[in-house]
C-alpha cells in the first residue's frame, strides 16, 4: 500500500470511529504540482486526500479558525515535524490544547513522503530534539550567507529593494500559523505605529515588526515566502532571528508544549550582550 493509501485509510478510520470530527490534509490543486488544504469531515471524502512531495504547506494554522476547537472535539492534521513544533508553540501560547490534536505525521525526503510514527505531539519529541541538533550544525542558506557578508549598508539596501515590491497584501500574515492575534498591530490605528500605505518605509516597518514578532516562534516552515505574491524571501529574516535565539539562548521554538516563550521568560544566566 502506498503511503497515500495508508494515510487515506487512517483518516477514514479516525472519522468513522468518531475519534476526530475533521481531518485537515492536502488535496489536489489547480496545477499538477500544487496542493491545497482540504477539510474532510466524512469518511467518504477521505479518498480526496493527497500525500506526496508537493505537500509543503504547514497546515497547523488552520486549527485556530475561530470556533473550530471550541467544542472540545479532536481534529486530525497532516503535519511535518515543523508542523508538530507549530502545534507545540500554539499550545505553549494557550491557543489550543494538544489533547484535541491527532497528528498524521510525515516527512518529505527528496521526492518521497515518508511516514512518521506517532499520533500525539508528544510522540515526536525525539525527532524534534534531533532537528534542533541538526539546526545548530546546519550551514547557512546560500543567500543568507551572502547577506551576512554584506556591510550593514549593503544589507539595508538589499532589503529596501526587496521591500519596495511589497504591496502590503498581508498574505504572509494570513499564511503564517503564528499570526493568530485577534487584532494585528498594523490594524491598530490608535496610534498608527505601522504605516499602512505600501511605500518602502511602511513596508520596512511592517516586515521588520513581523520578523521581531516571530523571533523565537518561527519554525521556518516557509509558508510566508510561499505565499508572497511578489517573491520577497521573507523566510531569510525569520531564519536569522531563529539563529539569534538559538545561539544566544539555546532556544529552539516548539521543542515541547510547555516551552516558555523566549522573549517573555528570563533566566539569571541569560547573556546580556545586547545591552550596551
Amino acid at each position: 500500500m502506498s503511503i497515500q493509501e495508508q494515510y487515506r485509510s487512517r483518516a477514514k478510520e479516525l472519522l468513522r470511529e468518531g475519534t476526530v470530527k475533521m481531518v485537515i490534509g492536502y488535496g489536489a490543486g489547480t496545477t499538477p504540482l500544487r496542493r491545497r488544504p482540504i477539510f474532510i469531515t466524512s469518511p467518504d471524502d477521505a479518498d480526496r486526500l493527497v500525500l506526496d512531495a508537493a505537500c509543503r504547506t504547514n497546515l497547523a494554522g488552520y486549527l485556530l479558525r475561530e470556533g473550530l476547537l471550541a467544542d472540545q472535539k479532536s481534529v486530525a492534521v497532516f503535519l511535518t515535524p515543523d508542523g508538530v513544533r507549530t502545534i507545540n508553540i500554539l499550545a505553549a501560547e494557550s491557543q489550543l490544547a494538544t489533547e484535541q490534536v491527532i497528528v498524521l505525521g510525515f516527512q518529505i525526503d527528496g521526492e518521497n513522503a515518508r511516514q512518521l510514527e506517532g499520533t500525539r505531539v508528544a510522540d515526536f519529541s525525539g525527532i524534534i530534539a534531533e532537528r534542533k541538533k541538526k539546526r545548530k550544525e546546519q550551514p547557512s542558506h546560500e543567500v543568507a550567507r551572502k547577506l551576512e557578508q554584506m556591510t550593514s549598508v549593503e544589507r539595508f539596501s538589499f532589503w529596501e529593494g526587496e521591500f519596495s515590491r511589497c504591496i502590503k497584501c498581508y498574505a504572509c500574515r494570513a499564511a503564517c500559523p503564528m499570526c493568530w492575534c485577534r487584532r494585528c498591530v498594523v490594524d491598530n490605528n490608535q496610534p498608527q505605529w505601522v504605516n499602512t500605505s505600501s511605500h518602502t518605509l511602511g513596508n520596512l516597518e511592517w516586515n521588520l515588526v513581523r520578523a521581531f514578532h516571530l523571533a523565537g516562534r518561527c519554525v521556518e516552515c516557509g509558508n510566508c515566502s510561499e505565499a508572497c505574491p511578489v517573491n520577497i524571501p521573507l523566510h531569510l529574516l525569520n531564519r536569522r532571528m531563529t539563529e539569534e535565539v538559538l545561539t544566544a539562548f539555546d532556544y529552539y521554538p516548539g521543542a515541547d508544549e510547555h516551552q516558555e516563550p523566549v522573549l517573555a521568560s528570563f533566566r539569571k544566566d541569560d547573556p546580556e550582550t545586547f545591552i550596551l
Binding site: Q95, R182, P261, A264, S265, F266
Partner: peptide, 14 residues
C-alpha cells in the same frame, strides 16, 4: 477585546 490570551505578559511580568 483584542487580547488573545497567550499569557506572554503573565510570564513576562516581574
Amino acid at each position: 477585546a483584542t487580547c488573545s490570551g497567550c499569557w506572554g505578559c503573565v510570564l513576562a511580568c516581574p
